[in-house]
């Protein structure tokens, strides 16, 4: 019984891997701003900019009429 149950589980899981693995992930997964930037792509950096999470290092300067 034990062997039968686990054998079924293995076959079912491999079936899921072969079928579900070839389908693209849902838009909930792929269209996020906080996705992992695996390949340092520009697109993801742009997302970060839009998100406002980009860190700007250095001393901030005051913007006045002269600087403009």
């Amino acid at each position: 019984m034990n062997t039968f149950f686990f054998s079924l589980l293995i076959i079912f899981s491999l079936f899921i891997l072969m079928k579900l693995g070839k389908i693209r992930a849902s838009s909930k997964q792929t269209q996020r701003n906080d996705r992992i930037n695996w390949f340092n792509s520009k697109e993801s950096k742009d997302h970060q900019d839009l998100d406002g999470s980009k860190n700007i290092e250095g001393k901030p300067e005051e913007i006045n009429e002269k600087s403009l």
Binding site: F5, F6, S7, L9, I10, F12, S13, L14, I16, L17, L20, G21, I23, A25, S26, K28, Q29
Partner: peptide, 16 residues
Amino acid sequence: GLTFGILASLLFCYKS
């Protein structure tokens, strides 16, 4: 069985 079970369930959780 447990290894492939975890693989399939996490794949479903990721894809969805």
